[in-house]
Structure formats: C-alpha cells, structure tokens
C-alpha cells in the first residue's frame, strides 16, 4: 500500500517497539526456559546509540548487529540479503565508518554510535543522497537501496578523508573523485536489479560533479 496510513502505522510500531528494553519475544523465552535448559543462550546487555537515540538491549550474544536492528529495534531499513558479508544490503555506519552489520555481533558495539538508513532521512525530509537516488532512479526493487545509500554516503567521506582504494594510483596522494574510484568502493553493494549506472549518476551529483 502506498499512502499515509501504512506509513503511520509502521512508524508507530517502530517507535513503540524500540522504546522498551529488549525485543519482547526472545528475552521472555530465555527467562522462561532458563531454569530447565542446560545450554540456555548466553544473554548480555549492551548499550549503544542508534540514529542519535540511546538504546539498551539485553540480547542473545549470537545476535548480529543487523538482527538487533531489524528484529529487536524494528528498524527494518537495513536489509538482510545474505547474512554473511557478501551483498552489502546490511550496510550501516558505525562511528562514521560503514560496516556489514550482519558480520558483527551486536554486543561488540557497546558505546558505539550507529547510523542506519532511517537516521539519514525520512520521507518528506530526505538526505541529499536519498533524494539523488530517487531522482536518478538509482534503484528498482529497493531491497539493496538502504545499503547502497549508506555506502554511498560513507564512500564520499572516505574519499574526502583521503583513504586510498584498490584502484587509487598512489597510496600517499589524495584519491580523486573518479568514476573508477566510486565504482570500486561501491562494489561490495550488489544490486541485482542492476541500477549501477543510475547510482553512479546520483553519487556524482552529490559529489558535485554532474555525470
């Protein structure tokens, strides 16, 4: 459904679900069964901030950062395409750097500042990169899109910070904003719909060089 209603509902659900300590299901289960199980899951508390909001969760230590976001905080903007570091759909920013959140356990992020696609912008108040993706049609099904956008934002920051890549001609000189640099750095984010050519145009617009 497209339109106001559904969005309001899901936004409300996100707010309600996110405020409480821990996702209700798993924790309840663990406490209920802990007494009669020998190898009950190991639970741990972790605190981090997500999109500027302090969060405290009690989690199964096996929970990935991605599942903490998607299942416990109900921030489902970060996507699960493979759950093992091969697609980039789960890309989020941690301490300003992009990571595959499926490859990282949530409890490793004590004190971290995490930014997800929801933190970059919301409908009606888009981040410039989100707006550029929309205008250049840098997506189709939309499933890889939050990861692409988080990566795209981080890639421009990496270039600005002078971090070299595999295609940089020199490790010591500042890398340029070439298409080869952008493509190389974005290659961890698969788009099976094949929106690459349009994503490049969106990124170049934001980087200040119209494609």
């Amino acid at each position: 459904m497209i339109g106001g209603d559904e969005f309001d509902i899901s936004r409300r659900a996100v707010l309600l679900g996110g405020g409480a300590l821990a996702g209700a299901g798993p924790v309840r289960a663990a406490t209920r069964k802990e007494t009669d199980m020998q190898d009950s899951p190991t639970m741990m508390e972790v605190s981090f901030s997500v999109n500027g909001e302090a969060r405290r969760l009690r989690l199964d230590t096996r929970t990935s950062l991605l599942d903490a976001l998607r299942e416990h905080l109900q921030l489902t903007g970060s996507k699960k395409g493979c759950d093992h570091g091969q697609c980039g759909a789960c890309t989020v920013l941690v301490q300003g750097r992009r990571i595959n959140s499926c490859l990282s356990l949530a409890v490793m992020h004590e004190g971290d500042e995490i930014t997800t696609i929801e933190g970059l912008g919301q409908p009606g108040e888009l981040h410039p990169m989100q707006a550029a993706f929309l205008h250049h049609d840098g997506f189709q099904c939309g499933y890889c899109t939050p990861g692409q956008i988080c990566s795209a934002v981080a890639v421009l920051a990496e270039l600005q910070a002078g971090i070299p890549s595999h295609v940089s001609p020199s490790l010591t000189e500042a890398p340029t904003l070439s298409e080869a640099e952008l493509r190389e750095r974005m290659s961890g984010n698969i788009c099976r719909c094949g929106a690459y050519s349009n994503i490049m145009e969106a990124m170049r617009e934001i980087a200040g060089e119209p494609a």
């Binding site: 679900g17 998607r70 489902t76 996507k79 409908p123 009606g124 888009l126 707006a131 997506f139 956008i149």
Partner: peptide
C-alpha cells in the same frame, strides 16, 4: 516521473515480507 513509492524505498520504510512486525 519519479517512482511514487520511491521515498519509502530510499528511506528503508517500504516493508518487505520478513519485516512486517506490525
């Protein structure tokens, strides 16, 4: 025209099957 569901997709607000907590 830009996609009418585009704002939802670029903000991660479009709900896919596994995500429908609500």
């Amino acid at each position: 025209l830009d996609r009418i569901e585009g704002q939802l997709k670029v903000t991660g607000s479009a709900p896919y099957a596994y995500e429908r907590h609500e």
